[in-house]
Amino acid sequence: MTSCDFIVVGHGLAGATLAYVLRQRGYHVLVFDPEPADTASRVAAGLMNPVAGKRFALSWQAAELLPAAAAFYQQLEQRFGQQFFFPAPIFKIFGSLDEQRAMLARSAEQPWGDFVASLTPADPGIAGVQAPFGGAWLQHGGHVRVQEMLDALAAEGRREGWLRRETFDWSRLVTDAAGLVYSGQVQARHVVCCEGAAAVLNPYFSWLPLTPNQGEVLDVECHDLPTAQVLNRGAYVVPVGEGRFRVGATYRWPPFADGPTAAGLQELSERLQVITSRPFSVVKQRAGVRPAVRDRRPLLGPHPTVPGLSFCGGYGSKGVMLAPRLAALLTDWLEGSAALWPDVDLRRYASHHAAANRA
């Protein structure tokens, strides 16, 4: 029988970052993940943005999450000799005078001042960019090439034998006196579910308030658009190299379409036309399902009744910002050296598990 310290189920952003942190701390980790498909992690543009939504709200825990994420991805770059993280200013385009005034008032306050490099109340004259009301230049953000990063980690895992390209069958997990045993072949001290949106079907964690939503993105060619910044107004426009940009994303609630849709193509094309006057051509369209949570906070921590079983996920559209710091936090908790933050501790939903058991 194979023995390990941790089994990690899933190798998207949540699982890959957690498995890496655990291995860096000297633990024997085994990861189960089927052949990659268009999951939310692999489709995402990997935007790290300190500001969220139309209300220009500061992203949750941005001051702690952003530097931790940047340091993590830079460490992976050194490991693999490949660039994954691209620091870049984000130009948040004002859509109206009201938006402009709201941002001008808010940006003078701390901690806003740490993330706003400058404001322009007039069109800054970026070639091909339509910004008649100006915009805000945001700093300490950028974007991550998530698919390339996951592929590099997976290739290492296959070479070293810690990644198995298999679907984990939860019905074959049993509790043993020494820990958990999977399929009668692997014994682990702890198992962590990092299945993303698929966790809604997990027999141990289906009670969690995950509310998956589907997002679509476009890869477009637009050779006349500058690549020195990320653009954001109702959609993000992230440079991905060779005159191409990733544009996203849509939000669709169940029932989900089977892959990309004509409606998604139209919606994103129209949003891009608001941002740029330059002609563009769509070269690819992809769709993935995000593992969102009702209160918009991640879910970390132990199963209420099964010792040695935990959950890590619910990152929604902020995975690249959240995953590195929360992987370290969960590892600290697993080691007994830190408590989980109340905002992310899944035990805040203990009543849901109790209600599911009564049903």
Rank of each mutant, 00 (worst) to 15 (best):
P212T: 07
N213F: 15
N213D: 15
N213L: 15
G215M: 11
E216P: 13
E216Y: 09
L218F: 10
D219E: 14
E221D: 08
H223I: 05
L225I: 03
P226D: 09
T227V: 04
A228H: 13
Q229E: 10
V230C: 08
V230A: 03
V230G: 04
L231G: 03
N232I: 00
N232S: 05
N232H: 08
N232F: 00
R233K: 14
G234H: 10
G234I: 13
G234A: 08
A235D: 04
A235S: 13
Y236C: 06
Y236K: 03
Y236G: 07
V237H: 04
V237M: 03
V237P: 02
V240I: 15
V240C: 15
G241Q: 11
G241T: 09
E242K: 05
E242A: 13
G243N: 10
G243H: 07
R244A: 12
R244N: 12
R246S: 12
R246W: 05
V247M: 01
V247I: 01
V247L: 00
G248E: 05
R252I: 02
P254W: 03
P254I: 01
F256M: 10
G259R: 08
P260R: 06
A263T: 03
A263E: 09
G264S: 03
G264T: 12
L265F: 10
L265P: 00
Q266Y: 13
L268R: 08
S269G: 15
S269K: 07
E270L: 14
R271H: 13
Q273H: 11
V274M: 12
